[in-house]
Design a protein around this nucleic acid. Structure first.
Lengths: 215, 215
DNA sequence: TGTATTATACCCTATAATGGGTAGGTGTTA
DNA sequence: TAACACCTACCCATTATAGGGTATAATACA
């Protein structure tokens, strides 16, 4: 172990209290050092670039720029810090997406502090760390290959389709959406039809659930 | 101020790290003392009964027994501690519900630690504390009386209706629900019809959204 | 026991939504 | 220019939902 320099860590989370908890946790380990905090993805990205920390703790559920988006941006900017995603939810899609983009681990916030510390140390050693009960999820996802194949080539929704999906996830009817967007109801139906096909869903209710589940 | 005894606080939240943050925060104030922690509603309820703290910090979004349910249970058990709800979301329904049941305040987790401490102190003095931008929400809700009148006399859903609502919020069709519950599709439709009327909604998609929003 | 609630199942009709098709206009890109 | 993707809008048919009704059996409760 290098006594001269501790491993540097940057925490990105929009809950001050949670950041404080993490900071205290990291203080407890002599080999780790918290070098920065950010309350949102934008600031986090900037800090990541300027501080070049060894490891970044990145919350998934943030207002504005999501953790996933932030992760994408970091990868595009060739930030070579280790990145551990922190989240409250074990949403399978998020886990797969994050790991696919290149996250180095995926931790649930309800882990015990000791386990979180342990995971950080493991990650420093190059291990991809994943919360225990998420590994089961992953194993399951790997078993039915469909999920991976599907997600590998996800026909992306057009912006109009996304817009309409959002309205659906708000409980709106085609007629209302049509009025809101000032287009014909028939056109809305076409978009709904396409978006259902692309997402491999079979009803607007499924679509609403799908959309709401991934925030 | 009584120098002899500090105000006692119990924190109920399923995120250990968050509890730690709160604990540290409370340690900073000489007039406050953290006397207990619980990771779920059940344990929280028991601790509340045995410790009889002056104030309880209660997270809304918990696995299993929700914060709202825990709050209800505490009120039924005649626990006379002050109860501050802590949550990440500013869901209007939750706020109204919590305050109606008798919460003494409603704080958002993304508040600054100082503000949270301040709110706790205010609550101790008997003030109902509510996060700033929630007050706007409340004002709005008060303006259109419908919301209050509606929620004041909520025709409760029967267990069967709740069961079916849950399936709807899972994206299931009437036909599938019928098969799952081994009843006729027509019966499912009746239940859906009734539940929509009771909740004052107009489509299953709205129902799904409604159900998902309140977890 | 009588009454209220609940779950069940069917009737009806009207409207909403799904899932195919074709097709014109626009903007981008090879 | 030609190919392509997208938004728009309509055609068609089928199915699903919504909302109203009546009615029966079981259960819960006073």
């Amino acid at each position: 172990m290098h006594e001269t320099s501790r491993h540097t860590i940057l925490a990105i989370d929009d809950h001050p209290l949670f950041r404080k908890g993490v900071a205290d946790l990291i203080d407890m380990d002599d080999t780790l050092e918290m070098v920065g905090e950010a309350a949102n993805g934008q600031d986090g990205l900037e800090l990541a670039k300027s501080l070049q920390p060894d490891l970044i703790l990145l919350d998934i559920n943030m207002k504005g720029m999501s953790g996933i988006d932030t992760l994408k941006a970091m990868k595009q900017e060739d930030i070579d810090s280790l990145i551990l995603m922190l989240t409250v939810s074990d949403n399978e899609e998020d886990v797969l997406t994050a790991l696919r983009i290149g996250a180095d681990g995926y931790l649930l916030k309800d882990m015990e502090p000791e386990d979180i510390l342990g995971s950080i140390r493991k990650a420093m050693e190059g291990t991809v760390v994943i919360s225990d009960h998420l590994t089961q999820l992953l194993a399951k996802a790997l078993r039915d290959e469909d999920k991976l194949v599907e997600d590998k080539s996800p026909t992306p929704l057009t912006s109009r389709e996304q817009e309409i999906l959002e309205h659906i996830s708000n409980g709106m009817s085609n007629k209302l959406i049509a009025k809101t967007l000032s287009i014909s109801e028939g056109t809305v139906k076409v978009h709904v039809k396409h978006l259902l096909k692309k997402l491999n869903l079979h009803s607007r209710t499924e679509a609403a659930v799908w959309a709401l589940r991934r925030l």
